[in-house]
Design a protein around this nucleic acid. Structure first.
Length: 586
RNA sequence: CGGGAUGUCGCCUAGCGGCUAUGGCGCCUGCUUUGGGAGCAGGAUAUCGGAGGUUCGAGUCCUCUCAUCCCGACCA
């Protein structure tokens, strides 16, 4: 491609919206342009990169015997009603009516579509296992798009769906994806870690997320450097200390103005772990069949030194959503905010008790009376509720597996794998006849990778003060050929030779000054740069530099230039291949 | 959906009730220049996000509205 004919232009200054490096450079280099909140166009450079990413993904999916398909973006609402997600997913899914008034949706993921295809194509165990995948546009009306391509509303996703005869089959396909994703991210050059995850709206049990660790990430990852335990904070467990004592008699004491745990501890001169904190939430339950909603007040009891992890609480409740309760909702249940507890409030509210509370004794709780607390409260004796782990893991807490210290990091989720089981096949009647003649639900899995998000993460990982420096596997072109010659025909000739040799080359044939060309080359950041100047040309030479190390340059004879460049390309590609790290699921 | 901020040319930006709305980059023309965003000369481009209002007079003040960004809620 000749730069003189390139559609996009580079920007010398970063648009205001660019709040992180990767986003700034993608904009400035002309990879992407914004159309609206969370809506972007990919310009030629950006599209070439995402196409390369997609092809890496294709290679790996095909390697798993995946078959590429394309499912529709617009779905009749019927299939979403069958699984109940038409009702359980809120405004994030966009809905509309077609001209006849039929309910339609924009598919935000394709479990329903895939299951629908599964039930039409798979009828016998002989057809299993199967794996289909697609690379397709998703629309999710996210309430808060952020950080360029990191969190958008319209995006391209690779999603694959596995169909198996039984759990063992699913385990097999899940395991293959687990390893395959490492290959994909390695080939693209993105360092990731895999973490145990919350399956969220997908349902199902086992799931993992692939995280690119970065301060711009929105997820919090807990890791143990000692034993390798990693988990999204939403599900991360940790070793809690319990404080067993002989239960003492409960007593009501006056605690004026002690509306917070801190104030209470200060007033009574006790430690936070000697208190029990009540957190009031409202859970929404949606009936999968009818779409009817029901709200219930939830009292989460947790020890004063810990915090509630809302995702865990929501999972325990099997609620569709969870939000903090309003003051009126709390008082309506006879609870006094600031002095509240589960004591005496059931059955008006669902009580969930963290095991930190259940296994500790003589905690100070609210008395549900303004200005008063109860000392020596004990679970079971003084109140009941469902015991579960609903505590949020924090930096410095103890690893559940080995007891060493957990550290927390921010991460961006670039891929996920879910064991769906039979949640969708049962709901949508996707059954096959097994060898024993019995109809059984197909056991499914679903696996996603955000293509644009992957590019955004790569841009974040590979940049310096001058611009991008993407790995050769995903850079829009392999080579940037900068000609500084007055005589265009010389550059044209070399460009033609490079192209003829199959080199993926961007040729700066513009009339501009050297500075502009170098600055643009730095910004776009193609991995290999050839510079042809008057001086070197007279000596029959051209200069080659790597974007990853601009300080070093190599002089090559023009006679062998094409082969030398091909060698450099191969070296960089081999480097990536050599650095493929694959982790297997045990 | 709550809190905050910002909308002036393709991008960045000046303006703080008063004349024809700054300047830089980019763009166009010509000449010069050609190894790190070069110089000179000339040129084009803005219904100041939109609607209403206050005022003799509004980019500037007020009201509403729209859009975008940030924090939170939320989220793969």
């Amino acid at each position: 491609m000749r730069m003189s004919k390139m559609f996009s232009q580079t920007l010398r200054e970063a648009p205001q919206a660019a709040d992180c490096k990767g986003y700034e450079f993608l904009l400035r280099a002309g990879f992407i342009r914004q159309m609206g909140a969370g809506i972007f166009s990919l310009l030629p450079l950006g599209y070439r990169s995402t196409s390369k990413i997609e092809n890496i993904i294709r290679e790996e999916m095909d390697d798993l015997d995946g078959q590429e398909i394309l499912m529709p973006l617009v779905n009749p609402a019927d299939i979403w009603k069958e699984t109940g997600r038409y009702y359980s997913i809120d405004k994030e899914m966009s809905r509309f009516n077609d001209r006849t008034g039929r309910d339609m949706v924009l598919a935000m993921t394709h479990e329903e579509d895939a299951t629908s295809l599964g039930r039409s194509e798979i009828n016998s165990y002989k057809k299993l296992p199967q794996l289909v995948y697609q690379i397709q546009t998703k629309w999710r009306d996210d309430p808060r798009p952020r950080a360029g391509l990191i969190r958008v509303r319209e995006f391209t996703m690779k999603d694959s769906y596995s169909f198996d005869r039984d759990q063992a089959g699913l385990d097999e396909q899940y395991k293959k994806h687990y390893a395959s994703y490492f290959r994909i991210f390695s080939k693209a050059g993105l360092p990731v870690i895999v973490v145990g995850a919350d399956s969220g709206m997908m349902g199902g049990k086992v799931s993992h997320e692939y995280m690119y660790l970065s301060p711009i990430g929105e997820d919090t990852i807990m890791t143990c450097s000692e034993c390798g335990y990693t988990a999204n904070r939403q599900v991360a467990q940790f070793k809690k200390e319990y404080f067993k004592e002989e239960p003492k008699e409960m007593e009501k004491i006056e605690t004026p103005d002690c509306k917070t745990i801190e104030a209470l501890c200060k007033f009574l001169n006790i430690e936070q772990r000697q208190t029990c904190k009540a957190v009031f939430m409202v859970a929404t339950f949606i009936n999968d069949k009818t779409g009817e909603e029901e709200e219930k007040l939830v009292v989460a009891q947790i020890r004063g030194d810990l915090d509630v992890e809302e995702s865990k609480l929501q999972n325990v409740l099997k609620a569709n959503s969870l939000r903090p309760a309003h003051e009126e909702e709390i008082t309506a249940a006879g609870i006094v905010p600031g002095f509240g507890s589960a004591i005496g409030c059931s059955p008006k509210a669902i009580v969930i008790v963290d095991d930190s509370v259940a296994k500790s004794n003589n905690l100070v709780s609210g008395a549900n009376e303004a200005g008063y607390h109860l000392t020596n409260t004990n679970f079971k004796r003084d109140y009941t509720g469902k015991v579960a782990d609903i505590a949020s893991a924090r930096d410095g807490f103890k690893c559940i597996d080995c007891g060493h210290t957990l550290t927390q990091n921010k991460g961006v989720e670039v891929g996920n794998i879910f064991q769906l089981g039979t949640r969708y096949s049962e709901a949508m009647n996707c059954y096959f006849t097994d060898i024993d003649g019995k109809a059984k639900p197909v056991v499914m899995g679903s696996y996603g990778i955000g293509v644009g998000r992957l590019l955004a993460c790569l841009a974040e990982e590979y940049n310096d003060e001058r611009g991008l420096s993407l790995p050769i596997s995903v850079a829009p072109y392999q080579v940037h050929f900068v000609s500084l010659m007055k005589d265009q025909s010389i550059g044209d000739k070399i460009y033609a030779d490079l192209k003829a040799a199959g080199v993926d080359v961007l040729y700066d044939d513009r009339k501009g000054s050297a500075g502009v060309k170098f600055a643009d080359a730095d910004l776009i950041g193609l991995p290999i740069r050839i510079t042809l100047g008057n001086k070197s040309y007279k000596e029959g030479k051209a200069e080659i530099k790597l974007r990853s190390n601009l300080d070093e340059s190599f002089s090559y004879s023009l006679d062998t230039l094409v082969d030398d460049v091909k060698n450099e390309i191969k070296k960089l590609q081999d480097e990536i291949t050599a650095n493929i790290v694959v982790k297997e699921l045990d």
